[in-house]
């Protein structure tokens, strides 16, 4: 594969995989928590939280990137203390690209986890309670295993979508080869460069292949999980 792709192209592919992995790893737990809160709790402001989570789906990605820049920039209300106290800088870094990707794919995971959670029969949780299982115990032994198809499907979908995140990443993290230049950014850069058509085509093909394998993998996992859960 290295023979087919140039070192720079290969770097973009690896970086994309890296950014998508980090984004999913970082957003999975919060997504499960938010999905649980939105599904199971009734509180004032629930509709607001729901809207906030879904915002990245409807707002232009560039606007999300701009918003992140405002918040997490070196002088932003979150970025400034991060930089001063912990020496963490997110703008123009791989972590920043992962953050932008995570924010963009967050609603996808939340939706999928919610679907998984809504499929969990609360009667089973009630049964677990009568058998002596406390809240954490029954979440870990009953709710979590039964909603795991939704979590896995969400993670795979978010990973596949994260490979292709463009607008938010280029706005927040910029287009730095080896740092923040993921696949779609590299394709964009290639199309802007005279004679870059071949590179763009190769990377587009890789991008297409990754997306399709991601979706197939998600389907396969979902089927396995349902069998494992005795629903097959």
């Amino acid at each position: 594969m290295t023979a087919w792709l140039s070192a720079e192209e290969w770097q973009a592919v690896r970086l994309s995989l890296d950014v998508a992995t980090r984004s999913v790893a970082g957003s999975l737990l919060p997504a499960v928590a938010v999905a649980w809160v939105l599904t199971r709790l009734r509180f004032p402001g629930r509709a607001l939280l729901d809207a906030l989570v879904h915002l990245p789906l409807v707002v232009p990605p560039v606007v999300v990137g701009w918003g992140l820049l405002m918040l997490f920039g070196i002088r932003g209300p979150i970025g400034a203390p991060l930089h001063e106290w912990f020496g963490v800088r997110l703008v123009f870094t791989t972590d920043g690209a992962a953050l932008a990707t995570a924010v963009m794919s967050f609603p996808l995971i939340v939706r999928s986890v919610r679907l998984g959670l809504e499929n969990v029969d609360q009667g089973l949780e009630a049964a677990a309670r009568t058998l002596g299982a406390g809240p954490v115990d029954r979440f870990l032994t009953v709710t979590l295993p039964l909603m795991s198809p939704g979590i896995l499907a969400g993670a795979v979908t978010a990973f596949a979508a994260g490979l292709g995140e463009f607008g938010a990443v280029i706005t927040f993290a910029s287009n730095i080869p080896g740092q923040t230049q993921t696949l779609p950014l590299a394709i964009y850069a290639a199309t802007q460069t005279p004679g870059g058509e071949a590179t763009a085509a190769r990377l587009a093909l890789v991008s297409f292949g990754l997306a399709v394998s991601g979706l197939l993998l998600a389907e396969l996992i979902a089927r396995r999980m349902h069998l494992w859960l005795g629903r097959g």
């Binding site: 029969d121 009667g123 089973l124 009630a126 049964a127 677990a128 009568t130 058998l131 002596g132 009953v142 295993p145 039964l146 494992w228 859960l229 005795g230 629903r231």
Partner: peptide, 15 residues
């Protein structure tokens, strides 16, 4: 409470 309950639908854990 230590009350064993048998429900109408067995409510066995499918997994």
């Amino acid at each position: 409470r230590r009350c064993g309950v048998v429900f109408q639908e067995a409510r066995l854990f499918p997994h």
